[in-house]
C-alpha cells in the first residue's frame, strides 16, 4: 500500500474562538510551521494572516451557532501551505462580503497595495478592526486566494477564506 504524504493536515481547530484561545492557536501553528521548516518570512506572513482572519471571526462572526463552529486549518500540499478559516455569518452579511471581495479580486496587486496604503493612512477605523484591511491583507500577501459562502439554514451562511502560500518562493 502506498501512503501519500503530499497533503497533510498540520493543524485543525474547530470550536468557539476568542481572544483567550487565539494566542495558543498562534503558538501551536507557529511551532508546526517551524517543524515543517517553513522559513521565517513566510512563517510570519502565514501567522499574521491567521491572526487577521481569526480576529475577523471573533469580531464579526456569529458565535454559538447550533450547527457550525469556526474552523481553522493549516494543510501542507507539496510545496504549498494552505490556510483555511471558516465561520458562520448572518445571511445579511453575504452580499456585502461578496461585493467587497469581488471588488478586491478585480484589482491588480498594485491597485490592492495602493488601496491598502490609502486606507492605512487616510481612513478612520473602528474599535474592533482596521477598516476592512484584513481581507485586503490576505489578498496582498497570499499566493492564491479563494472564498466560498455556503448556505447554513435559513438565516445563516458558512463563510470560508482559503489562502495558499508557496514555500519555494521564500
Amino acid at each position: 500500500m502506498n501512503v501519500s504524504y503530499e497533503h497533510r493536515t498540520l493543524f485543525r481547530y474547530e470550536g468557539p474562538l476568542d481572544m483567550q484561545l487565539l494566542p495558543q492557536i498562534v503558538k501551536s501553528a507557529e511551532q508546526l510551521l517551524i517543524g515543517e521548516k517553513v522559513r521565517t518570512p513566510l512563517r510570519r506572513k502565514i501567522i499574521s494572516i491567521l491572526i487577521e482572519l481569526a480576529q475577523n471571526v471573533i469580531h464579526y462572526g456569529i458565535h454559538n451557532h447550533p450547527l457550525a463552529n469556526p474552523t481553522i486549518s493549516l494543510t501542507r500540499g507539496g510545496d504549498d501551505i494552505v490556510l483555511s478559516i471558516s465561520n458562520p455569518i448572518h445571511v445579511s452579511q453575504e452580499l456585502f462580503l461578496r461585493t467587497y471581495i469581488e471588488n478586491l479580486l478585480s484589482m491588480s496587486k498594485d491597485e490592492q497595495n495602493a488601496l491598502y496604503q490609502n486606507v492605512l493612512t487616510k481612513s478612520d477605523y473602528t474599535d474592533s478592526g482596521g477598516a476592512g484591511l484584513g481581507i485586503l491583507q490576505v489578498l496582498i500577501k497570499s499566493d492564491n486566494f479563494s472564498y466560498k459562502i455556503e448556505p447554513l439554514g435559513q438565516e445563516h451562511a458558512y463563510f470560508t477564506i482559503t489562502a495558499t502560500f508557496h514555500t519555494n518562493n521564500s
Binding site: I51, E52, L120, Y125, S128, G129, G134
Partner: peptide, 13 residues
C-alpha cells in the same frame, strides 16, 4: 514587533 494586526497598523501610524 513580531506580529501586528491591521488595527495596530493604523494606531502605529
Amino acid at each position: 514587533l513580531q506580529y501586528f494586526n491591521t488595527s495596530t497598523a493604523k494606531v502605529l501610524l
